[in-house]
Design a protein around this nucleic acid. Structure first.
Lengths: 340, 340
DNA sequence: TAGTGTCACTAAACCGGTTTTCTAAACCGG
DNA sequence: CCGGTTTAGAAAACCGGTTTAGTGACACTA
């Protein structure tokens, strides 16, 4: 048999007599032969796989429950459409390098900002791409969430409860070339929201009342620990991720604080577990799964009709969910703010 | 310039004069040229990517926090070694099909048992593979955990607290061809552990005191809900995953039960959040991240020296972590077990 | 009985690189 | 000045498929 015949047997059996087609497949089975997927990709110039691009190492990304939820949305949509999933994270510190190795038809990029050092090379690959949690690149579709409004609502909530001394726990971005963690994208927008509410209430935010860490339980714990060790004694904590809020609560409790009596805590994301921690976490809900699903949907629109493609920019809503981790500011503490 | 020269410029610049090598790369940059990774894979016969094989849809797998932790371990090891990560889940219901499409150098398979309907085809691909949470295929390396001992410890713990009416919440496997969820692998081993402890205490387990569901918060919630609706009133719940335990606790509380006063709950896994839920979850710890990392380590041993390769079988320890979700059996309930 | 279609299969070109083999020019010592 | 090495770059074969353009056998038509 010619290799042409074999190829037909697998891809267009109708071009062979039924009998030979069956025979070829039988022989293939007994020989354990499978068409090499790489060769197939090469000729067809498509891979049927989608990439998920993360500016940080996967190991750190996966420690944020947010990401599992997001992946759930991405996976659901991708599986529906028959695409496989490939995770792209910096290789030897370079995202562009990892991108160059990745065999995907398109990419969902999480939090990729215009000032990322390798953004030029990444876009240079010429792959369809949609941005999540960023709309810095107008020629690429994007899926965002109203971070600023969500953060403002969170801050207004604690201010309404009488809190005046607020600690903000921010998510640190990937390090800039200078080694300084950057404040950009999501972090920047949420900070703006917090700040807006504080400004409106006439409260100034001391720079040592903003700490940052990784978006995980441990990251939140160590960030709060740092602030505490430096003498910061807030009555309310605004954390930019639920995981961080939970970490901060653990440390606070270890310091003898009762939540929400002595200190209130607000998270961000509303992961499934937020309702189940002790106390149930007040947080800003965002539709994480949907973000993932929408991103894939937009990406495939681009992948499958590359010609007349118009980028689309989605902005989904956030909303505050009040649970048990926030309460009125403690009376005696309202005067003693900033005690060392 | 010949394409040979271009190839040299990228891969072995020392075979070109320094000057031309630089010139070629400059031209490539301005033209936005990148060597096609698929073509490169084809000639080199390696992809520098590892697959993670899941018998269930990724969307359901990712809803189990266990998986994020496991992925964290896998990703950490893979990134260290310069490999990318590709997730392989059933495509149109067929794992073998997805496997055939995947361009990977090796596979970490989660919970793949010998009686999986497609195990023959999966192995037929001839890829290096290591099994996690299964050692059904002796010729493949495996990473296991002592599920039986862990489960036994959990059951002995609640028995020691005086509980006599125990509900088991099992993880349901992928559906068998008959549509019946299967009881196999991890689930079977843990069940054996629970059973052993119950037997030793002379307690017989009624079959309607085992319910199953997906390994997620919702899965645990609906499984417990089902049992409750059927009139089951246990004083202790043994769940095969922390997420399920948390879901069960939620429903129990909605029914007016206090935990652990009215009912004790034990989980399995010890995910990061187990210590932070309300009440802190008593659970069986297993080293999840390490499982992922070890699996990758074993896999790469096989990938990189395929000739003289000996499969290795790892069995890691589990241990019971007692927290606040378990307590003495309620007195009055000890007599009223099984009320309808 | 030659002309024309159809059928079942094959030869050859191609996908976009890498790698081995070759060639022409520059270099080198004697 | 000449044969033998290096050196820089090119030609060609190859990776393992898909796809287009044949080709030969056979049946059908006029």
């Amino acid at each position: 048999m010619s290799k042409t015949a074999v190829s037909f047997a697998f891809n267009s059996p109708e071009r062979l007599s039924a009998e030979t087609a069956v025979r070829i497949r039988e022989v293939a089975d007994t020989l354990g032969y499978r068409p090499n997927p790489v060769a197939r990709m090469l000729t067809q110039r498509q891979t049927m796989t989608l990439g998920v691009l993360t500016p940080q190492a996967l190991a750190v990304i996966f420690s944020n429950p947010f990401f599992a939820l997001f992946s759930e949305g991405v996976a659901h949509a991708a599986e529906d459409l028959g695409y496989e999933l490939h995770f792209i994270s910096p290789l030897h510190g370079s995202l562009a390098l990892a991108m160059g190795r990745a065999t995907v038809d398109g990419v969902v990029a999480i939090g990729l900002s215009a000032d990322h050092p390798e953004v030029g090379q990444i876009r240079g690959a010429g792959l369809p791409m949609v941005l999540v949690d960023s709309d810095d690149l107008p020629e690429h579709s994007s899926v965002m969430v109203d971070d600023e409004a969500g953060a403002r609502a969170a801050a207004e909530h604690v201010l309404g409860l009488g809190h005046r001394d607020v600690l903000i726990i921010a998510v640190e971005g990937p390090e800039s070339p200078t080694g300084q963690p950057q404040r950009q994208g999501v972090t920047e927008r949420r900070l703006r929201g917090y700040q807006a509410a504080l400004d409106a209430a006439g409260i100034s935010l001391r720079s040592d009342h903003i700490v940052a860490g990784r978006a995980s339980i441990e990251g939140g714990a160590s960030a709060f620990q740092r602030a505490w060790a430096a003498g910061t004694r807030p009555t309310a904590v605004l954390a930019m991720s639920d995981a961080m809020a939970i970490g901060a609560m653990r440390v606070a409790r270890e310091q003898g604080l009762r939540i929400p009596d002595d200190m209130s805590v607000v998270g961000f994301d509303d992961i499934d577990l937020a309702a189940h921690v002790d106390p149930p976490l007040t947080t800003v809900h965002q539709p994480i799964r949907q973000k993932g699903a929408d991103a894939v949907r937009l990406l495939l629109a681009e992948v499958e009709q590359r010609e007349a493609y118009r980028p689309e920019h989605l902005r989904l809503e956030t909303r505050l969910i009040v649970r048990g981790s926030t309460g009125p500011a403690p009376r005696e503490r309202q005067e003693v703010t900033g005690a060392t």
